[in-house]
Design a protein around this nucleic acid. Structure first.
Length: 699
RNA sequence: GCGCCCGUAGCUCAGCUGGAUAGAGCGACUGACUACGAAUCAGUAGGCCGGGAGUUCGAAUCUCUCCGGGCGCACCA
């Protein structure tokens, strides 16, 4: 609503400039003034025009403002300061438009976006860094879909990497386990999952509120920490084993270390080659861990459509097809001199090496021993994503969600299957350390002449999640003295140092369940559902409120907070509104229907004047969602929407305290206040849904 | 050495393509539950927006430089 008004305003000024001054401008800047007394929309355009027109800005502003008079949707225009043109909306008209429900979804465009996120190595449990990735990716998917785009969600599985090999080495050589043993272990932990419930310590509520946090830490049991090894979730088991193997490689005599490294490489080769017992064990492990990852993410409402695996990229010879194309298009060339002699290399973007000169800075794609590097495989994979490879995966159903199937790549697939690939745009949710490899990828696409695709190959980068020193200490990790005063400490999967995703979710669930139990008396299942919605709300909001390039220093106190700028704060505003309508015995739609009959003078009196500023502010915020959505997509930054939802809740709470709705004596005004609450409710629910956060019936 | 990111209140962070008086949460201190639930609200204190220069009518925002912090630049995956 606000967005259309703003565009309308800008367009009118543009045509005005053309009519009056014969001036064409590319765009008219406009924005929200710092205070309502300056109106709802303003432009400083008179300042830029001052030189061109050789007139004082104030005079130009005056002329434009006069010519704007009567523009639909606006009450008046004024000139302020040295030459700002301030526009004042026609409040009754604006409020009516905002109250009118908009068409549910914009028309579907043929634009097909592919978002790849999560992509955790399937050798250990997911940790909080992976949660940031998945939550950012999933939220962005929701935003794109809300904007009418068709989106498929991929989760890339590197099941043949050295990390998986390490766990295989661990099972075989540290634990002496056979293929059958590993299979049995997996079956066992699957059975355990089936009967697993969520623990809810009932009496640690005060402790969790922060007064005695260390006590709460010890009382809230970590599900993995103390259970017997064989009964622990399989991904937790692998988490520890992976850390042990990493240690094992680094210890012992030199010849011992060398032998262990060789074991590692041999294992990796066998896995890559396939069709042997090592590869079978790797497949077993990676698939079991992958299932755990999908379950973890499902707890947060995160789902996938397709899981492409590295093993198929290898066995279906994607690289060979890409290599032919790369050679034919001269993107790769064979280096005969210098340090990269004997390799197939690619020039980097911005390379300054002259023609004929040896480009030492070139990126190696095929090593001198003939094997392909990671970037090479990635190029092949991305050609497939855009439908440019000329090959396809086989597909098998893998994981069933309530309303759709998630498919996985396979050597020999099943028919029929949905079509994947051939995207118009792709978004890769990967942390910022991958900026260089991602740039190489785009460079290769560009070099092959796929410039349109290169422009739509977007690195959706984000910073890491680290731990505060205090949090690291709470978890029982040793912290070096020099790190004690640093703002954050990096996690390390290789050292088993970090916070597991499921542990955090369990902790949140325990805390929200305790809060809900203290306030609600309904059936246990209902309370559990509410606790779950709040836990997810707290976690997702926590991960989304930071902009992508800010490092999150993780701390349980902040992440488990339900007050202030948090998901539960917003959810609480929703519950408050629902309570009002419950108590009034009225449906929101009924309130809005009555509202439609209010006269413009009535609306005018309810919306104007000092004492009603907060109400008008709330309506304005409600009108802004589409504008914020557009901004989020343009900047690939979901944090704007998180902020918007919070501000909306904040403004509603403000309104809630100032105006008591149900005791309002003037009928028309009561109708108006109810409609205000109804619209705020609609906008809160919609905004939260876009963030993947549910709106509880009660809290 | 080359490249990228960051530096805003005690702490953690917002600040849209340059715009009017720099915002929020937490923490601290004051207050508000006989009204739609206080997971809330109102108020107070707290800022040379890292330093300097430049562009501009106008800079937290753009350019340069310096200081301080982080991360990339492998024939690793």
């Amino acid at each position: 609503m606000y967005l259309e008004t703003q565009k309308h305003f800008e367009a009118r000024i543009r045509s005005l400039l053309e009519e009056r001054y014969d001036l064409r401008v590319d765009s008219v800047p406009s924005g929200t003034p710092p205070d309502l007394k300056f109106g709802e929309l303003a432009t400083p355009i008179a300042f830029e025009l001052a030189r061109k027109l050789r007139k004082a800005p104030k005079i130009i502003a005056q002329e434009i403002a006069e010519a704007l008079a009567g523009l639909e949707g606006f009450a008046k225009f004024e000139v302020a300061g040295a030459g700002y043109i301030n526009a004042y909306l026609d409040r009754p008209a604006s409020v009516r438009a905002t109250a009118t429900p908009r068409p549910a979804t914009p028309p579907e465009s043929p634009f097909h976006a592919m978002v790849e996120h999560t992509s955790i190595n399937p050798n250990k449990a997911a940790h909080i860094g992976h949660l940031r990735n998945a939550i950012l990716g999933d939220t962005f998917v929701r935003l794109l879909r809300a904007a009418g785009q068709t989106v498929t969600v991929q989760n890339y599985i590197d099941n043949t990497g050295v990390q998986v090999a390490d766990v295989v080495v661990g099972f075989r050589h540290l634990e002496g386990k056979s293929l059958a043993d590993v299979r049995a272990l997996i079956d066992q932990s699957l059975n355990r999952e089936m009967s697993r419930g969520t623990k809810t310590p009932a009496d640690n509520r005060d402790a969790l509120k922060g007064r005695d946090f260390s006590r709460a830490m010890s009382e809230t049991q970590l599900p993995g920490a103390s259970a017997p090894a064989a009964l622990r979730p399989f991904d937790y088991y692998c988490w520890d084993l992976y850390a042990r193997v990493s240690q094992w490689y680094d210890h012992g005599a030199d010849d011992e270390k060398a032998a262990r490294k060789k074991l590692r490489l041999d294992t990796l080769r066998e896995i890559e080659h396939g069709e042997n017992e090592t590869a079978e064990m790797a497949e077993l492990i990676s698939t079991a861990v992958l299932r755990r990852h999908l379950e973890t993410m499902q707890r947060l409402g995160i789902e996938y459509d397709f899981l492409p695996r590295e093993s198929e990229i290898l066995h279906l010879k994607f690289w060979e097809a890409a290599f032919e194309q790369l050679k034919r298009k001269s993107v790769l060339y064979f280096e005969t001199e210098g340090k990269n002699k004997g390799c197939w290399v690619m020039r980097r973007s911005g390379s300054e090496a002259a023609q004929g000169e040896v480009d030492e800075d070139a990126k190696v794609i095929v090593r001198s021993n003939g094997t392909v590097t990671y970037v090479g495989k990635d190029i092949a994979y991305h050609l497939w994503k855009f439908g440019l490879l000329g090959r396809d995966f086989g597909y098998k159903p893998f994981f069933r969600y309530p309303d759709h199937e998630c498919w996985i790549s396979a050597g020999r697939g099943e028919e029929p299957h949905p079509r994947f690939g051939s995207a118009s745009a792709i978004y890769n949710v990967i942390d910022v350390r991958q900026t260089d490899p991602q740039a190489n990828l785009v460079q290769a696409l560009r070099g092959m002449g796929y410039t349109g695709q290169a422009d739509h190959c977007i690195h959706f980068g984000y910073e890491k999640v680290a731990l505060t020193p205090r949090c690291a200490l709470e978890l029982g990790f040793e912290v070096a003295d020099e790190d004690l005063n640093s703002p954050y400490i990096l996690v390390s999967g290789r050292k088993g140092f970090g916070v597991k995703a499921d542990d955090l979710i369990d902790k949140l669930m325990a805390a929200t369940r305790a809060e809900v139990d203290a306030r609600q008396t309904g059936a246990s299942a209902g309370r559990q559902r509410i606790a779950w919605q709040i836990a997810v709300g707290a976690l997702r909001y926590f991960m989304l409120k930071f902009t992508r390039n800010s490092v999150i220093a993780f701390d349980f106190r902040d992440a488990l907070s339900f007050e202030g700028e948090t998901g539960p704060y917003i959810q609480y505003a929703v519950v408050r509104i629902r309570n009002i309508f419950r108590k009034a015995g009225l449906a929101e739609s009924a309130a809005l229907a009555e509202f439609a009959n209010l006269s413009a003078p009535d609306l005018e009196s309810f919306l104007c004047g000092e004492e009603n500023e907060d109400i008008w502010t709330l309506w304005l915020r409600c009108a802004r969602r589409s504008q914020v959505l557009e901004q989020c997509i343009a900047t690939s930054e979901p944090a704007h929407l998180a902020k918007h939802a919070f501000q909306l809740a904040q403004e509603f709470n403000n309104f809630y305290h100032k105006h008591h709705i149900l005791t309002e004596e003037i009928p028309a005004r009561k109708t108006f206040l109810l409609a205000t609450a109804a619209v705020a409710l609609r906008e809160l629910i919609e905004s939260l849904a876009l963030l993947g956060i549910g709106s509880p019936e009660a809290m």
